[in-house]
Design a protein around this nucleic acid. Structure first.
Lengths: 355, 355
DNA sequence: TTGTAAGCGTTATCAA
DNA sequence: TTGATAACGCTTACAA
């Protein structure tokens, strides 16, 4: 009847570990050619005799057939896969982005292939490599962005890329991020208005990471624009140097003299370090030192007198990032966009001097 | 020379968006057949004339060729892909498992396809469906486990499955989890030894979730085995009912009379709820109420007087889960295993009456 | 030891 | 409108 050789018996109710039905199975069951089944699937209503259409439909239902995305990918070059590279799944920010992105992808019918760098930027190239090998149609990158060549690599493969939170030098790609400058101003302004005058911006070691650089720069420019009685410095705090942090805080308080010292911390991890230092020093948040930190977390309200934070629209960031990518996949062809979302100040006890 | 038609010109240094080199490209470049290249890749040293081998090797390097996993999957039926279904990426426990699993997979050369349920158990079947469609070789499931049929579905596809933290009824699969009974005992015992006598176990609504049931049962049996002056109840706290939680805590204290009341909370989310309630009630952790919570987090030390916790070896759990799966994929054929890891008590101020 | 050719599950281009 | 057939990039009998 057809040259296509039967491979599996078309037993109706398979009980044991059974392979998925293929398009050939469906074709046989419906008494048509594979091409017809494929047409039914892809071009639906066009070019199909009602009779044949229903026969195919029935066969598909009977065999619980669904096409193999692998085979489709091989043939069409489109895999319905999106690669997500995350600097560190442990970082709540990354997770939030992940969540938003995953949701958007799911809704658009894409599946996510995940690669976690574990903060090891040397994996960056490997990650992109592995992901593109699997024919992902595009990449969402939340990486250190240090290895300039790697993302370019992806672009060279002609795949759309969207960068989240961290820019890559010379990268032609959509970029989705918090409005760092605005957010820093929001936090610093709040500290000043609350009465803190001697400020310190504490960041993880900046190391060319774009978001860290932007925040530090914004802080400096805030200080230089502020009224004369406001002073400010910046400090980079490595993970393993609590001694250095303590020292920095002591100096801060010394510089402050009679005025109130305030800290702006660049993310939740640093915030926690500052909180730990406060405990070591025996100081109290709010009265001895004002604190506003980037990233609002579910535990922020319950640490000390409540931590004042700058909340990032993390979910939004992830969703928009995925959205940008999906638009590109649908054929949108614009020059690289830059989408900046505003942070929101959440004032709590840690920036209230009279507690 | 061969019947295989040339497709791309073998230009040495492609600059524009360029397709990956294929095995045919390599074959042509090396002047051998595709089969030879394939053999070089898969059987390495065997059956290969040194001369030819180096020619192939050079060609591969020159073209930066790496085989398409998609095509390999199609041919071999092995995709080097592992599916991970997570109940809720927002849950720190899930994230930790994710992290451990991802690492183990990476090391074993597998890539992770992620599906997040967002706590919607109705997606469970869809998730497994989508993942198996992509020929994942196995599944790691950290789901609600309510939908009995879904995992069985996977098993029917003949794919190995490992369950993390939550069992499924009637599921023949490896199971990796905290030793809930032991962990509950650890926490409850600690409360009792610290002097708390009237105990309350607070859980999210249990709803047939196996880990919640096990913890509640273990708590009850601890209480009934304990000395006569120790009493205990359990309470299920839904997300939106802070009033009910406050009431439960007031009742607890009432029951306690002159004795000290203590709470054992079933995870970090609940712990945070209890902390919030304490703030509302104006009670102090430790002195007014003892608290030990499941899940040690990076913020546990800094909430109130420090939260006493039962730390789960989350990384370990994820790694072992992935490990189990990979063993199965390598052909291990044992009856379903059950791997229980011990929790570790981390005592802090919240379970110290004299603070 | 190497090459030829078939086939994995699709889709697309032809004829019919 | 439908069907045969040739790819997609790879692996693997089977021939040579």
């Amino acid at each position: 009847m057809s040259t296509q050789t039967p491979k599996r018996s078309a037993s109706p109710a398979p009980l044991q570990p059974t392979a998925r039905a293929t398009i050939a199975d469906v074709a046989r069951q419906a008494g048509v050619s594979k091409a017809t089944v494929s047409r039914f699937l892809n071009h639906r209503e066009k070019l199909l005799t009602p009779d044949i259409a229903t026969r195919v439909e029935v066969a598909i239902a009977a065999l619980a057939y669904s096409p193999s995305p692998m085979a489709q990918a091989l043939k069409r070059g489109r895999s319905r896969l999106i690669g997500l590279v995350v600097a560190d799944v442990t970082n709540p920010f990354s997770v939030a982005v992940l969540r938003g992105a995953e949701k958007a992808c799911q809704e658009a019918g894409y599946l996510l292939m995940l690669f976690n760098l574990g903060n090891d930027s040397r994996c960056e190239a490997k990650a992109i490599e592995a992901l593109t090998a699997y024919q992902v149609e595009g990449l969402i990158l939340n990486t250190l962005g240090q290895d300039a060549g790697t993302a370019a690599e992806a672009a060279r493969h002609g795949k759309p890329v969207v960068l989240v939170d961290r820019r890559h030098q010379n990268m032609q790609a959509d970029f989705v991020s918090l409005d760092n400058a605005g957010a820093v101003r929001l936090g610093a302004q709040h500290l000043v208005q609350a009465g803190y005058r001697e400020l310190l911006f504490i960041s993880e070691p900046i190391r060319e990471v774009s978001s860290r650089m932007e925040r530090a720069a914004a802080f400096r420019s805030f200080v230089s624009d502020a009224s004369a009685d406001v002073a400010g410095h910046t400090f980079e705090s490595p993970a393993d140097d609590s001694e250095g942090l303590d020292q920095a805080l002591r100096s801060l308080r010394q510089r402050a003299g009679g005025r109130l010292p305030g800290v702006l911390s660049s993310n939740a991890v640093v915030t926690l370090r500052v909180v730990a230092a406060m405990a070591r020093l025996g100081w109290r948040l709010g009265s001895d030192l004002g604190l506003v930190g980037f990233d609002d977390t579910e535990w922020s309200p319950y640490v000390g007198p409540g931590l004042s934070t700058i909340a990032q629209p993390t979910d939004e960031l992830g969703r928009i990032a995925a959205g940008c990518l999906i638009e590109r996949l649908k054929g949108l062809n614009l020059p690289p966009r830059q989408i900046l979302l505003s942070g929101k100040l959440v004032p709590r006890g840690s920036s209230s001097p009279d507690r």
